[in-house]
Amino acid sequence: MKKIGFSILLLSLMLTGCQTSKPTLKVFSWGAYIDNTVIEKFENDYDCVVIYDMFESNESMYTKLLSGEKYDVLVPSDYMVQRLIDEDALQALDYTKLTNASGIINGLLNREFDPTNTYSIPYFWGNVGLIYNTTIVDQTDLSQGWNILRDTTYKGQVYVYDSERDVFMVALKALGYSTNTTNMSQINKAYDWLEVLDKTMDPVYSTDDVIDNMIQGNKAIAMVYSGDATYITAENPDMAYYVPLQGTNFWVDSMVISRDAKEVDLAHEWINTMLDPEVAKLNSVFVGYSSPIQTVFDDLKETDFYGLSAYTPRLDYPNDEVFKYNEDIKRIISDLWVKVKAN
């Protein structure tokens, strides 16, 4: 017994001893949002260890931070950047270290959530739309816009993205309201809209599993992010992407450095590397999301992603909105969404 115990302790000491004293950079980003070779190359170039962790939604990322996890670099969306700025959880970026920042598409900068880009810099951008099977869905039905998700012709044929902000955006836009409304009667109408969808359409609420399911053609219509749509349409030519004219959410997922980051210099190097045209191209090709680097974007829309409308989300369309963070509305919406799902 003693011997076994001793050898186990020795073994574990040996195992823990293997871990290096190299600097460790902790990155927290979306699932499947990077070409893994980029991480390895970064580790070699900067002689460090990168802990790359993934989240499913802005809300779950925030909850993780709340429960005491600490990361150096985060990649939240616009409204979550705003929330983190409001709560003083971020530190200002040092642009002298971000030499590649000049390549960013102008339209993505100086947005309302971080008016001077003091804290954040774009990583990927896009919008939310519908992916549909051209062999099943009648093109004329698309003119209903978001209401096609409640068209009973397609009962049992829809995937809805399981994210409170996005589903309420769809409902509010379908009803002709602003996604950032604070009017309770509009929010309640959106809730009713979603209840009807839930009751009559037999939808499946999915997250990343929608990607493979749509590539296999398991259902006719799915609500997806434009980047996933690029990947799906590239893999399955029967699928096409459509963004309703009622408007949608326009988003910018941005890199930020947390206030309590331990490796501030390394975090800047990481961000700068992601903005490097070569690296940005690798990432964009690998995951299908639109690159914020002008040269990469112009290149890929003519080459790898030629003819795929999802890769070129519309910029500055009047009905499209960026989310704004509002704590009370957030709480109301997340309670209502749980109710829709639970009912």
Binding site: K26, G31, A32, I51, Y52, D53, M54, K64, S67, G68, E69, K70, Y71, T207, D208, D209, I211, D212
Partner: peptide, 19 residues
């Protein structure tokens, strides 16, 4: 657990979304 520490179960859970 957190901060990037995952066991096999957690990894299977996070990766199960994609084929």
């Amino acid at each position: 657990s957190g901060n990037g520490v995952k066991n096999i179960s957690i990894l299977v859970y996070t990766m199960s979304k994609r084929i």
